[in-house]
Design a protein around this nucleic acid. Structure first.
Lengths: 126, 126
DNA sequence: AGGCTAGGTTTCCGATAGGAACCAGCAGGT
DNA sequence: ACCTGCTGGTTCCTATCGGAAACCTAGCCT
């Protein structure tokens, strides 16, 4: 009835579930998108993304690095220069992410509209 | 150089950014996936997803409802029966989510492999 | 009456997110 | 020589989140 078979992603303790939890945080998708055009410096990402703190950027990049999606190049220069780029594995995530960006572009207004029509306690009335 | 134009999603204060933050939490994507086959009851989702608590399920569904992606049907029966289903807007998210599931299916092992090859302090060495 | 069911909420506590401030290391201005 | 600044990163502290378990409602069954 439910139509989900065994090994179905998301619904079990499988690699797919882990992969989803990998990207399901506030900044991962945005950072991957920021890296999608080629190597970018730490400071450039800060400017580009807007709203992310240095700490969260570093933390997100470190996790992506540990998961094999991003590669870090630290040049022994002064002032220090560090560039990040997608690995081939990380690059395979760009397509799904682009689908999300297109969805967002097309439906972002509809979501805002729904929020507007449904003023739930998103802002708590404390 | 960076190649991102004005109004580029993720990189600015636009509806797209909001939409991404909408789905960028631990359970939203999984719950949407669980709803992708048609109306499902609260309890079914608990069984189906595995690992989610009732609290987080309700919370996630409420947010999705407030954002116009999910519709709630509460039947005045005893014992109570509540069904959730995607709205047409919510259904438009299924395609991007399926791309993620396919990515995960194809690359989940590669991610696990990278983690294995890179035993970073995921478990802190305290 | 007491227990069962199913959805939901509350309470409590540990984990995490996030901003601000601080650190390292060297070049350049004064 | 010293102070400042640039760049990347880390530490401190707090607000929020996530999760387990208990409790609640309300009608049915035994």
């Amino acid at each position: 009835m439910s139509g989900f078979g065994p090994g179905d992603p998301f619904l079990a303790d499988c690699p797919a579930r882990l992969a989803v939890e990998l990207i399901a945080d506030k900044w991962t998708v945005v950072v991957l998108y920021g890296l999608s055009k080629g190597p970018v410096r730490h400071g450039e990402l800060i400017e580009l993304i807007g709203g992310i703190s240095r700490k969260m950027l570093t933390q997100t990049l470190r996790r992506l690095e540990a998961h094999g999606l991003v590669r870090r190049h630290a040049y022994a220069e002064v002032p220090p220069r560090v560039e990040y780029e997608l690995t081939p594995l990380g690059a395979t995530l760009i397509d799904p992410i682009h689908m999300l960006t297109e969805w967002a572009r097309a439906n972002g207004d509809a979501v805002l509209d729904a929020i507007d029509a449904d003023p739930e306690p998103v802002t708590h009335t404390d």
